[in-house]
Amino acid sequence: MSRAQSYKEGEAAASQQAEFNTGSKVRSERVALLLLSALLAAAAVVIYRLSFAHFQTNKNLQTLKDENEAMRKNLTEKLSELSSCTSEQLIRPKPAEAKTTGLCPTCEPGWDQHGGSCYYFSSYKLTWDQSRSVCKVQGADLVQINSKEEQRFLDDKVGGKGSLIFDWFWIGLTDSKEAGRWLWVDDSPLNTSLSFWYKNEPNNWTEENPAGEHCASMGAQGGATDLKSWFDRSCDFPQRSICEKAAKTG
């Protein structure tokens, strides 16, 4: 073999080796790039999952906070409602149907609540019998007064609702069955220690009606003293009235 031929063969071999080395390098770089891409994709998946888990955790925490705030608000409202109940409201329900289980009694719009009862002060004037019928239509009856506290409550209300000095209200007390024997609408006798007759009342005055005065009302005639604001009147005289019924509980 001549020297020139040997030289050419050497160059060819060197060229092939160089191409082989270049190809190997390219393949290695491609493998490394693919491996790096795979690692980045895996990292992205891990980061996404961690971010989603963090988001869910924050969302759950916020939900728990909202629920806790709602429960706290509801508890505050319930405590406020209960604190508005006086000891009389919870201990002395009247009538008997108003007995509670520790919850505040409530009344319909237009009715005033006191203790375990609801009271309606009429704005129209009717006879005693007519007034009682109107009360019954509303599931009530003319008011029956059983305590000094109740009398004070009604006396204050009547004083605020009466527009005239002789603007009286019928109550559920009458001696129409037997003169001088005053009975409440449930036929229970009047307790003389819990009567609040105005001075010189009852007097059974016959000038207004020869049949006399056999129904009781309350109001103010020159100003009541010591809660004494009851008057006997002719049952046929038209005047306002006070209805009473048991408060609802819930």
Rank of each mutant, 00 (worst) to 15 (best):
M1A: 13
Q5T: 11
S6V: 10
K8G: 01
G10Y: 06
A12W: 07
E19M: 10
N21K: 14
N21E: 15
S24W: 05
K25L: 10
R30Q: 13
L33H: 15
A38E: 03
A41C: 08
A43S: 14
A43R: 08
I47F: 10
Y48V: 13
S51P: 03
S51V: 15
S51K: 13
F52K: 13
F52R: 13
F52C: 06
K59E: 04
N60W: 05
L61A: 10
Q62T: 11
L64G: 05
M71K: 10
M71H: 07
K78R: 14
L79N: 05
L82C: 09
C85M: 10
C85G: 04
T86D: 04
E88A: 11
L90W: 01
I91R: 10
A96S: 15
E97P: 00
L103W: 09
C104A: 14
C104Q: 10
C104H: 08
G115V: 08
S117G: 12
Y120N: 02
Y120G: 01
Y120D: 00
F121C: 08
S122W: 02
S123R: 15
S123H: 13
Y124S: 12
K125Q: 15
Q130C: 01
S131H: 00
R132S: 06
S133E: 02
C135F: 01
K136C: 03
Q144L: 08
I145R: 06
N146S: 14
E149D: 13
E149R: 09
Q151P: 05
Q151E: 11
R152V: 02
F153W: 13
L154E: 01
D156W: 01
D156R: 07
G160P: 00
G160C: 03
S163M: 14
S163A: 15
I165G: 05
D167L: 08
F169N: 02
L173R: 02
K177S: 14
G180V: 07
R181C: 09
R181N: 14
D186A: 01
D186S: 01
L190S: 03
N191C: 03
T192R: 05
L194I: 07
L194W: 00
Y198R: 11
N200E: 13
E201M: 14
P202N: 01
P202G: 00
A211Y: 09
H214I: 09
C215A: 15
S217W: 06
G219R: 04
A220N: 14
G222K: 02
D226Q: 15
L227Y: 14
P238Y: 01
R240G: 02
I242Y: 03
C243F: 02
K245L: 09
